[in-house]
Design a protein around this nucleic acid. Sequence first.
DNA 1: GAAAAATTTAACCAAACGGTTGAAAATCGA
DNA 2: TCGATTTTCAACCGTTTGGTTAAATTTTTC
Lengths: 114, 114
Amino acid sequence: MFNHMVEHHLDRVFHALSDPTRRTILDRLAEGEATVGQISRPFPISFAAVSKHLGVLERAGLVTREARGRERVCRLNPAALGDARAWLGFHQRFWSERLDALDAMVGQKSGKPD
Amino acid sequence: MFNHMVEHHLDRVFHALSDPTRRTILDRLAEGEATVGQISRPFPISFAAVSKHLGVLERAGLVTREARGRERVCRLNPAALGDARAWLGFHQRFWSERLDALDAMVGQKSGKPD
DNA sequence: GAAAAATTTAACCAAACGGTTGAAAATCGA
DNA sequence: TCGATTTTCAACCGTTTGGTTAAATTTTTC
């Protein structure tokens, strides 16, 4: 059902998401577009390393880089998360009987059972 | 907000999810518990390789292995998916304005524009 | 046009990955 | 107990990963 060509794309998306630096980059990008320099500044690693992380995110389709002068503006591309969401959603359906307990753990915002 | 101790666990979950063999294992386990041998049979790789994949899934908390005689019964543990779902959900909120277009792409169940 | 700035690319390195084979460990059945 | 079965563990191998530094590229600014 999900085993078409999406597969290898899903590989890249989940792999991109598996690194904490890259997730932090996405967190930052969620607040608005930023240049590579702006993104890399708070990280304790080299500029080039961040540029490579951006490459991974871009190849996964999660981020776009647009040249603007000598800078490169990075933006989120949430469409790529769709595959991951769809995969997770697909499994949610299968695992549903145990997802009751799961939702109680994750979304414990109130006593709301549903 | 999500940068506590969950981080390194999220690393493991997303990493576990990033391999197509491991996702197929989860697919199979979604249909019911199975022994390592049963799981490994359809795969073209060695038994030991599948056992290692199971180890990755287990360390990510996605799967449990319970000894039963000389066999080991594997089951899904959907609670671990909760962190991934929560992370994705967190970002969905931020990316919401673009998620309209996303949902139109992913879940095109009808012509419903909103 | 030359210097400076922003970014990528290249070369390199250690560690991790995904795979192999073969040995070890535990359990079952005769 | 002995042999077969199920699984893990250990050692190994080639590739990828995440990092480095240094050079190359592009654009801005003087």
